[in-house]
């Protein structure tokens, strides 16, 4: 799985909860919630989606480190590298 794959999965997850936003218009280094109308329920949906697609567990304690798309992608890349997928 490449960084591009992870990024695409993240953008897909965001698109699923916020279909009105064109994911390519989101600036990846800026705060996601300043650009997309996402509430805590939406964020949990994104976390569940990423968990199901990437088999990565994202503890609540780490939510604070996941404020931009770039942060989410690098977090997931580190996690997918650290914990080899079982399938």
């Amino acid at each position: 799985m490449t960084g591009q794959d992870v990024r695409r999965i993240v953008l897909d997850a965001i698109h699923r909860v916020a279909p009105e936003i064109d994911p390519s218009s989101i600036r990846p280094a800026e705060r996601l919630r300043a650009q997309v109308d996402i509430d805590s329920m939406d964020f949990l949906s994104i976390v569940i989606d990423l968990h199901e697609k990437l088999q990565v567990d994202i503890p609540e304690a780490d939510y604070g480190r996941l404020t931009t798309i770039d942060e989410i992608v690098s977090y997931l890349e580190a996690r997918t590298a650290a914990t080899p997928r079982s399938r």
Partner: peptide
Amino acid sequence: PVTDRILPA
């Protein structure tokens, strides 16, 4: 599990 996480709401 993440799918059973409970929000403060």
